[in-house]
């Protein structure tokens, strides 16, 4: 264990990888590492990259990171893709678009499946970000699929949320407006060499201007990530958002919220584990039968279950 921690602080990729595996598998070891090294955390800037599928999130991440490593920055990337609810399996393909970064000494990339967790992130993502932070990364990029209200957890984890869109998604803008417009700090219209880019930019700006006036008005940037166009500007906007967060005291506020959320999540996970443990047995099956037979209602069963868990904990 000592060895792993030492290696982790040296940003040894195998050590980081193993620590994240512990986090993903919800093992006690992950919490132990964080407990011991928590003082080292808090230095990484967390950038969330989100948007609908097919808009070029991975390519954009790849280019942003390439620019940053040229400045000597150390970077962790976490790419989250949905796990199939039917088989529990997933195909994680974001690395395809980040091939050149694979062997870069200052970059670590990890693909994660959501593993049944809702909100667009996996349960392990929160801890994985902490681990990369502890390992001394200057930036951690978290890439998630985000298309509707159900996938907005990225806001809970990132300092700056970059929403990536592409022209020709006309109808999707409505969905985005309805759901996740509020969470973006920077908008990127990628693939802007395609027809309809200016229209998308215009629509976004109109939507943003209709919104309640805010201290930070999210900028809209055009990019062609594939050709490296607009990358500098996206980074610039991320930086100025960071400056705004610091000067307005929002960064502290966001991080405070994040700690709150991490605690809640952790409690929730622990409780859920107990709940599921209770639900697997015969006694529970019998209760279900009773509900089926209308002898009792589901809410009474739930209440009893909750009390049981609480009592045991006390």
């Amino acid at each position: 264990m000592m060895e792993l921690e030492k290696l982790l602080l040296n940003r040894d990729k195998r050590a980081i990888a193993r620590a994240i595996t512990y986090a993903e598998d919800d093992e006690e070891k992950a919490r132990e590492i964080i407990r011991k090294l928590y003082k080292r955390s808090g230095n990484a800037y967390i950038v969330g990259i989100t948007g609908p599928p097919g808009v070029g999130k991975s390519t954009l991440t790849d280019r942003l990171v390439k620019n940053l490593v040229e400045e000597g920055k150390k970077i962790g990337i976490i790419a989250v893709d949905p796990t199939s609810p039917f088989t529990g399996g997933s195909i994680l393909g974001d690395r395809i678009r980040m091939q050149d970064l694979t062997t870069h000494p200052n970059v670590y990339i990890r693909s994660m499946g959501t593993r049944g967790h809702l909100g667009g992130l996996s349960k392990g993502t929160y801890m994985a970000v902490r681990i990369l932070d502890i390992a001394g990364m200057d930036y951690v990029f978290v890439e998630t699929v985000g298309v509707g209200q159900s996938e907005v957890d990225i806001i809970k984890i990132a300092d700056t949320v970059v929403m990536v869109l592409a022209p020709g998604l006309g109808d999707d803008i409505q969905a985005i407006k309805a759901g996740i417009m509020e969470i973006a700090d920077v908008f990127v219209v990628n693939k802007s060499d395609r027809e309809g880019a200016d229209k998308t930019v215009l629509e976004l700006n109109m939507m943003l201007d209709l919104d309640m006036p805010k201290e930070w008005r999210p900028p809209v940037v055009k990019a062609v990530a594939q050709e490296g166009k607009g990358i500098g500007e996206v980074l610039e906007k991320i930086h100025s958002h960071k400056e705004y967060l610091i000067s307005s005291g929002q960064l502290e506020e966001r991080r405070k919220n994040r700690i709150k959320m991490e605690i809640t999540e952790s409690v929730k996970n622990k409780l859920m584990k107990d709940v599921f443990a209770k639900m697997g047995n015969e006694e529970f099956d019998q209760k279900i039968q009773k509900v089926m037979a209308k002898e009792i209602d589901p809410y009474t069963v739930a209440e009893a279950l909750y009390r049981q868990i609480l009592e045991r904990r006390e």
């Binding site: 599928p53 097919g54 390519t59 195909i91 393909g93 395809i96 678009r97 594939q226 050709e227």
Partner: peptide
């Protein structure tokens, strides 16, 4: 010209 990047969608 640069190089092509593979498109895979599962």
């Amino acid at each position: 010209f640069g190089e092509y990047q593979q498109q895979i969608i599962f």
